[in-house]
């Protein structure tokens, strides 16, 4: 697929220079992000938390669709499972924050593995539609399993605690959300460059050819679903740490589509793209929250225009621009 080819085509020297050149701004960005709550209002921090959750969601969806080429449309379901697992772990079991996050990730990953196993029988449109159906069925479950999820009334989450300190507001939650998001980002880079990441891409290009090369295609596909669901679950757990209330309304197809949009607008198959798409699109949707009609029209126009004129997404376009400047 094109983004990888573009990177591979770079001479080794240029790529290491580029990496060094990226290191400084990356460190600066992390420091700036870490200091964000010191300088800004609670609302900005809240938006930052939401964006970071979107980043983790996008990274996960990019793993299964972008890297492994499996068209899964049940991301919001795993996200929802993560939210409820974390909230209930906190509320009923009294788990500390780290335990809640792990529980959220693991429960989602297990279900992701099950869906991945079922999905082995299907491809393309049928896979997309089965996972879509699973997502819708899960949302129905969230809405109707009242003893556990609170149903349409929603569920109140008690504040989670980290090392005995209760997290009561967005600013307190922010370091945790940022730390976990960075951890997940790092893990994505490691996975993407590992043997497993290469296996994902081989399966994406052609599972027959991958099988011929000795890649255990079935296991790799299940792994893609499982990992992607783990990300979504952790994202849900993060959401639960800075929210006091969950409502199943926001856990349907619309959310899956929002995340898919982020991944595609950012650049399918590229980690940087998932990051960029989540931040840019998340900001747009937050800025236009008050005007739903305008928000929807803007979404629609962005999607259509991107597919017409920037079909590979933001990340390849940006990296081409950066490299172009470097040569001058």
């Amino acid at each position: 697929m094109p983004p990888q080819q573009a990177v591979a085509a770079l001479p080794a020297r240029a790529s290491s220079n580029l990496r060094l050149g990226l290191l400084v701004p990356a460190v600066a960005a992390v420091v700036a992000l870490a200091l964000l709550p010191v300088f800004t209002s609670g609302y900005v921090v809240y938006v930052a938390n939401v964006l970071l959750v979107y980043v983790v969601l996008s990274l996960g969806l990019n793993l299964v669709i972008g890297e492994a080429g499996q068209f899964s449309l049940s991301h919001a379901a795993f996200y929802g499972i993560g939210i409820y697992a974390a909230a209930l772990g906190n509320k009923l079991l009294g788990l500390p924050l780290v335990g809640c996050l792990l529980l959220a990730g693991v429960v989602a990953a297990l279900l992701g593995g099950v869906i991945g196993t079922i999905a082995l029988r299907m491809r393309d449109i049928y896979l997309a539609l089965t996972t879509f159906a699973f997502g819708e069925a899960m949302q129905w479950l969230f809405l109707n399993w009242e003893p556990v999820t609170g149903g349409p009334n929603g569920l109140r989450i008690p504040p989670s605690s980290l090392f005995g300190v209760e997290i009561l507001n967005d600013k307190q939650a922010y370091p945790v959300v940022l730390g976990v998001a960075l951890l997940m980002l790092g893990a994505t880079v490691v996975i993407s460059r590992s043997r497993l990441g290469r296996a994902f891409r081989a399966v994406r290009e052609s599972d027959v050819a991958a099988m011929a090369m000795g890649i255990p295609v079935r296991r790799v596909k299940i792994m893609a679903f499982l990992l992607s669901a783990f990300y979504a679950g952790v994202a849900g757990g993060l959401f639960a740490t800075f929210s006091t209330y969950i409502h199943p309304e926001s856990l349907g197809f619309q959310t899956t589509m929002t995340v898919l949009t982020m991944v595609v607008v950012g650049g399918l198959g590229s980690t940087g793209g998932a990051l960029l798409g989540a931040v840019v699109f998340g900001l747009i949707s937050e800025l236009l929250r008050q005007a739903p009609a305008v928000q929807e029209m803007t979404y629609g126009l962005i999607l259509i225009l991107f597919m017409m004129f920037v079909p590979r997404g933001l990340a390849p376009a940006v990296s081409r621009w950066v490299r172009g400047r470097g040569h001058v």
Partner: peptide, 11 residues
């Protein structure tokens, strides 16, 4: 995604 864009736009 383009058809999805159309759906948002129309709504």
């Amino acid at each position: 995604i383009a058809t999805l864009g159309l759906s948002f736009l129309l709504r």
